[in-house]
Amino acid sequence: MIVVANVIVFVVVMGFNNCPSHVSTDRFGSSCVAGFLHRFSFQPLRENPLFGPSSSTLERLGALKWDKVVYQHQGWRLITCIWLHAGVIHLIANMLSLVFIGIRLEQQFGFIRIGLIYLIAGFGGSVLSSLFIRNSISVGASGALFGLLGAMLSELFTNWTIYTNKAAAILTLLIIIVINLAIGILPHVDNFAHIGGFLTGLLLGFVLLMRPQFGWIERRYLPQASQVNSKYKAHQYVLFIFALLLLIVGFAVGLVMLFRGENGYDHCHWCHYLSCVPTSSWSCGT
């Protein structure tokens, strides 16, 4: 359902963009890509190599932009930006990742809980991104997707006792997470949204993805001596309370800092390395 919603939103955005209405072939031969799609055709590749709309269209329709959130009180952009994509390539990459990550989680925990994690993690990614990135717009579901990865990791820990091959499962998941976060240190990638979404999803997994301990569901069919007395184990309750408190405090502090116009770099001078690491091959804008 989330995949379908993202595709529909992208089609609507392309219709609103209406490339032929404001782009004509220039002296360099640049014109709308796939012109046979008429108003749904893409911006010239020199403007958007991802086969998508213009940045001005994305900004008008809800892309995340710091000054509009803080000074024009458009907090709704913290949510709308996760439904927008910069182009077909961006959309396909995110939706394939969503299918790969989300199907298993949805089968095990249901659409409502996974949908909540997706939305709240996307919101968390937007908040952290806004605290650090001020000079460009940001769109995409990557923060929400990283939230699902974080939830998968915390779900492994909180339901530790019911899993076999625990080490292999955690190692595989950690490798996937590290690789994806490492990609985020390339220029023009909003790694703060990734990190914010991941941390939010990690905490939400402890809150929303607890499983009853082994034997709880079957307790009525077991001898009295073999029945368990509590639905969840003690460590699950501890992780639930700790994660919930961190979520509440984290969102409260983050939103207060954001709407007061504070710059995250004033509190973390080295954090720019989390989003882009300069090398001899590229530089990082400030």
Score class of each variant (00 low, 15 high):
S230H: 14
L245C: 15
N229I: 10
A243S: 10
V238P: 09
Y237E: 11
L258Y: 00
L246E: 04
L246V: 06
I241K: 11
Q236D: 06
A243I: 02
K233N: 11
F240S: 04
F251M: 07
V256A: 13
G254A: 05
Y232K: 04
G250C: 05
A243E: 01
Y232R: 03
Q236S: 06
L239P: 01
V238H: 13
H235R: 11
K231C: 12
M257C: 10
A243C: 04
F240C: 08
Y237N: 12
I248C: 06
L239F: 11
V238L: 15
V238E: 12
V253M: 13
N229E: 13
L255R: 06
F240E: 08
F251Q: 04
F240P: 05
L239N: 03
R260H: 14
V228T: 09
G250D: 03
H235I: 10
I248H: 02
L245M: 15
V253R: 08
A252L: 13
F251G: 04
A234V: 13
I248G: 01
A234G: 07
F251C: 06
F242I: 12
Q227E: 09
K233Y: 06
L245W: 08
Y232V: 07
L245D: 06
A252E: 08
V256N: 13
F240H: 14
S230K: 12
L255G: 03
S230L: 12
N229W: 10
Y237L: 13
L246Q: 09
F259S: 04
L246G: 12
A252Y: 07
Q236M: 07
A243R: 02
F242Y: 09
L244S: 13
G254P: 05
V253F: 14
M257N: 08
V256Q: 14
K231T: 07
A252V: 11
L244V: 04
A243G: 00
L239T: 02
I241D: 05
Y237A: 10
R260Y: 12
G250P: 03
S230Y: 14
M257D: 07
Y237S: 11
L255H: 00
Q236L: 07
L255T: 06
F242C: 09
R260M: 14
L258G: 03
G254H: 02
K231R: 15
L246Y: 02
S230Q: 13
A252K: 10
L255Y: 04
L247F: 00
F240T: 04
V256K: 15
A234Q: 13
V253Y: 09
Y232P: 01
R260E: 15
I241L: 13
F251I: 05
I241P: 02
V228M: 07
I248F: 06
L247N: 01
K233Q: 15
K233V: 10
I248W: 02
F251A: 05
I248R: 01
F242N: 04
K231G: 04
A234H: 12
L244P: 01
L247I: 10
Y232M: 06
I241F: 14
L244Y: 05
N229T: 13
L247R: 00
L246F: 11
V228E: 03
V253P: 08
V253G: 05
Q227G: 07
L255W: 00
A252P: 00
L244R: 05
G254K: 02
L244H: 03
V249E: 09
K233A: 14
L245Y: 08
G254D: 02
I248A: 12
H235T: 08
L258W: 00
K233D: 11
V238Q: 14
